[in-house]
Simulated scan of single mutants.
Amino acid sequence: MDVLVRVSEATGVPADLLGGYLSALTASIATGRLPDRSEVDALKACGTLAAERGIPLRALTDACLLVAEQLSDGAAVAGQENGTVLGAVLGAVLGAVRRSLAAFAEGYEEAHLTAITREGEARREFVDDLLQGRADARQAEHFGLRLAEAYAVTVVRTDEPLPPDAHVIRRIEQALVSRFGSHNILVAGRDGMLVCAAPASLAAATGEFTHHVRSSVAAWRAGVGRPHHGPGGIVTSYREAVGAIELGDRLGLRAQVLKAADLLVFPVLLRDRGAIVDLVGTVLGPLAEARGGPEPLLSTLEAVFASQGNHTAAARRLGLSTRAVTYRLERVRRLTGFSPADPTQRFTLETAVLGARLLEWPDRPLV
């Protein structure tokens, strides 16, 4: 036991973690055999215990080598006195050390993997709580968020849903943490999407996040919520970000990054559904009489509005001739009585087209 006391004092590794190792090593020196399965399992359990106690693997390895060194010195002296072959003794020691260290390391690594798994599960539970408004400040601090600040949430939807433990999520998080610090950024998977919560004071965080997404994911679209304070604020920003993506889909917007702040008019329109239904039906309803249905004329109006009234640019967007665009706009004027060339009528037409996309007309009936 003197050996264990000396080694423990020198390395800081508790003696109880090394007792089985010392016995296995002593037996190997005496018999020349390697540690058996029961001894290996005991050493593996000690490796797990060392990890749980927070003992560095380097210190554990140093303690093992120091025990082997002291036992080898004693065996060498005994070997010289008894005329034994030192090579056989040292060979037995080194073989036993190698197998013992492998067992220690295996137990140690398993403990770390278990801890990582538990942390991942806890993190997923926290993200669920956070985005449903159930997280508290202590939880948030553990995962790097200070809920007293205003946070903006960015949500990325990819063509293929991302699992919560996807490698791309961890890689993007590491890149952001290395720049902004671990107590400023949260990156996680949620409902197959990639979510990033960052303080509003870090204006560059959203751009940095989307930059890494662009270099890591082939097809994606992002929604950016407005900054809000507190746990409820993060929920609100998250819902705004998801809503921005959904609005982009319904309106056929081309931008990859959609900001909720730029789309505030659309929730306003939808709040009075009756009014928008009446507007679409009154202004655009007559387009249903057009040959081929209303969709080609709606698409033409959208292209013209997106091109600030430039017929040539709109034609390029649609893959048509400028003459065809002009013909379609005249057809709209004749059917509806509204012309994009008239400023007042243009506003009415554009609002009605946006309303039609929000209501998914003409694919769905106006009710």
Rank of each mutant, 00 (worst) to 15 (best):
E125W: 07
E119W: 10
G19S: 14
A140N: 10
D62C: 00
G133C: 09
L57A: 07
G20C: 15
E125I: 06
V40H: 13
D73E: 14
A75I: 01
G91H: 05
D62M: 04
A63S: 11
V97F: 02
N82T: 07
A111Q: 11
L71I: 05
A103R: 05
G47M: 06
V89A: 15
G20T: 04
A59T: 06
A96S: 11
V97E: 01
V89F: 00
V93G: 12
A68Y: 00
A92N: 07
Q70A: 07
A59L: 04
E69T: 05
G20I: 12
E119T: 10
A122I: 02
A24Q: 07
V85K: 10
A137L: 02
V97Y: 12
S38G: 03
Q132K: 10
L34P: 15
I55R: 08
E69R: 13
S28L: 13
D41C: 02
L49I: 07
A24M: 09
D128F: 10
A105R: 13
S23V: 14
E121L: 10
I55K: 06
A122Q: 13
G74K: 03
E39N: 13
C64L: 09
L49C: 11
T61M: 14
L94N: 05
E39A: 15
E106V: 00
E110V: 01
E141A: 10
G20V: 12
E52M: 05
A45F: 04
E110S: 02
Q139R: 11
L71W: 11
V85C: 08
L22C: 05
A92W: 06
G87R: 02
A96L: 12
G74I: 01
I116D: 03
V97L: 15
T117R: 09
A111L: 00
L43Y: 10
D41Q: 14
A75R: 04
V40I: 06
S72F: 08
D62Y: 01
Y21P: 05
Q70T: 10
R37F: 11
A105P: 09
L86E: 07
G79S: 02
S100A: 02
